[in-house]
Deep mutational scan, measured.
Amino acid sequence: MATGGRRGAAAAPLLVAVAALLLGAAGHLYPGEVCPGMDIRNNLTRLHELENCSVIEGHLQILLMFKTRPEDFRDLSFPKLIMITDYLLLFRVYGLESLKDLFPNLTVIRGSRLFFNYALVIFEMVHLKELGLYNLMNITRGSVRIEKNNELCYLATIDWSRILDSVEDNYIVLNKDDNEECGDICPGTAKGKTNCPATVINGQFVERCWTHSHCQKVCPTICKSHGCTAEGLCCHSECLGNCSQPDDPTKCVACRNFYLDGRCVETCPPPYYHFQDWRCVNFSFCQDLHHKCKNSRRQGCHQYVIHNNKCIPECPSGYTMNSSNLLCTPCLGPCPKVCHLLEGEKTIDSVTSAQELRGCTVINGSLIINIRGGNNLAAELEANLGLIEEISGYLKIRRSYALVSLSFFRKLRLIRGETLEIGNYSFYALDNQNLRQLWDWSKHNLTITQGKLFFHYNPKLCLSEIHKMEEVSGTKGRQERNDIALKTNGDQASCENELLKFSYIRTSFDKI
Rank of each mutant, 00 (worst) to 15 (best):
H28M: 05
L29Q: 04
Y30A: 14
G32T: 03
G32M: 10
E33C: 15
E33L: 11
E33F: 02
V34F: 09
V34E: 10
G37C: 06
G37S: 08
D39K: 15
N42Q: 05
N43A: 13
N43C: 06
E49N: 15
E49H: 05
L50S: 02
L50F: 09
N52R: 13
C53N: 00
S54E: 06
E57C: 15
G58E: 01
G58V: 00
H59S: 11
L63F: 03
L63M: 14
M65Q: 09
M65F: 09
T68D: 04
R69F: 05
D72T: 14
P79I: 05
K80P: 01
M83Q: 12
M83A: 04
I84C: 01
I84G: 00
Y87D: 00
L88H: 00
L90N: 00
L96S: 00
S98K: 02
K100E: 10
K100R: 11
P104S: 02
P104V: 03
V108I: 02
V108D: 00
V108M: 10
I109W: 00
G111V: 00
F116A: 01
N117I: 07
A119M: 01
V121I: 10
I122D: 00
K129T: 09
E130P: 00
G132N: 14
L133M: 04
L136M: 03
M137E: 05
I139R: 00
I139F: 03
I139G: 00
T140D: 11
G142F: 00
V144Y: 01
I146F: 09
L152R: 01
C153N: 00
A156G: 14
T157V: 05
I158Y: 02
D159S: 03
R162G: 06
R162T: 06
D165L: 09
V167L: 09
E168L: 14
E168M: 14
N170I: 12
I172L: 07
V173L: 07
L174S: 06
K176P: 05
E180L: 12
C182G: 01
C182D: 00
C182A: 05
P187L: 12
G188M: 06
K191V: 02
K191W: 00
K191M: 13
C196G: 02
P197Y: 07
N202E: 02
G203Q: 13
T211G: 15
H214K: 02
C215T: 01
C219N: 01
K224S: 06
C228L: 01
C228D: 03
T229G: 07
T229F: 05
L233E: 15
C234Y: 02
C235T: 00
H236T: 04
S237F: 12
S237V: 04
E238H: 10
C239A: 00
C239Y: 00
N242E: 13
Q245M: 12
T250G: 12
T250K: 09
K251G: 06
C255R: 00
C255D: 00
N257P: 00
N257A: 07
F258A: 14
Y259R: 08
D261Y: 15
G262Y: 04
R263A: 12
C264G: 00
Y272A: 06
Y272L: 08
Y272V: 05
F275T: 03
Q276A: 12
R279E: 10
C280P: 03
S284H: 13
S284A: 03
F285C: 14
H290P: 07
H291M: 08
K292P: 08
N295D: 04
R297Q: 13
Q303M: 12
Y304R: 05
V305L: 09
V305N: 12
I306A: 08
H307A: 08
K310S: 09
P313S: 10
E314I: 08
C315P: 01
C315W: 00
S317L: 07
S317I: 08
S324D: 10
T329V: 10
T329R: 14
G333S: 15
P334F: 08
P336K: 15
